[in-house]
Write a protein that binds this DNA or RNA. Structure first.
Lengths: 107, 107
DNA sequence: AATAATGTTCGTAAATCTGCGAACATATAA
DNA sequence: TTATATGTTCGCAGATTTACGAACATTATT
């Protein structure tokens, strides 16, 4: 919780999650992490055709958005999905998409 | 379909939707549109504390991502949710968040 | 102490995003 | 024709994003 988690409106929170997911590389990282029990930085880097500095940056953004978490296991760094926030995001997106008027006469 | 809809991987499509949702103003616009049957540009602009040029830009991005659609009704412009793609997005986000290993021993 | 292994951080460059006012486009009303 | 109403597009400025190599930090190994 020392992770710079400000109080935000639902709109801001949802936008924050969405923004973090708004890049193909980060979607790939999230899917990869979601499919594993455990995973080190190197494993993620191996999946991607980009420099490690860039991978590290993407991971940082995902972590700051709360979707993943990291843990140092010297000399490696272990990453995984932040399950607690994952559930929150899941619920927020679900509610967002469900909350629509089912009127046919749109545009 | 003339709307510049390229063939994309699921990752790219999901990232595209997410990116469009990655701004608080655009979330507000989407929620507003989802709550209504019909809605003109002016109504959306009235909901927001920003210039109409900026609102128009946000609407353009949402339209290009496929989440909304517009229709000229001179001299007004009517906007609404693109239901077809809304359903697609709903399913993709739902699948994305559901597809996770339920292992407790994470980080 | 020097080397190796694993990632992070720094500095930089190019591209994209965000927001605004001004100008423009279009159709209706006076 | 001129004016009005409604939005879009243009051009600009400042901020943010994306990507990279180089340098750095940390711990284990030789």
């Amino acid at each position: 919780m020392s992770e710079k988690q400000n109080v935000k409106s639902t709109e801001e929170q949802l936008a924050r999650f969405a923004k973090a997911m708004g890049h193909p590389t980060r979607i790939i990282i999230l899917k990869f992490l979601a499919s594993l029990d455990t995973c080190y930085f190197g494993d993620i880097h191996n999946e991607l055709p980009i420099a490690k500095a860039t991978v590290s940056q993407h991971l940082k953004e995902l972590k700051e958005a709360g979707l993943i978490q990291g843990e140092i296991e010297t000399p490696k760094v272990k990453y995984c999905i932040n399950k607690e926030n994952w559930i929150i995001a899941q619920k927020e997106f679900s509610a967002f998409f469900s909350d629509i008027k089912n009127n046919e006469t749109c545009c």
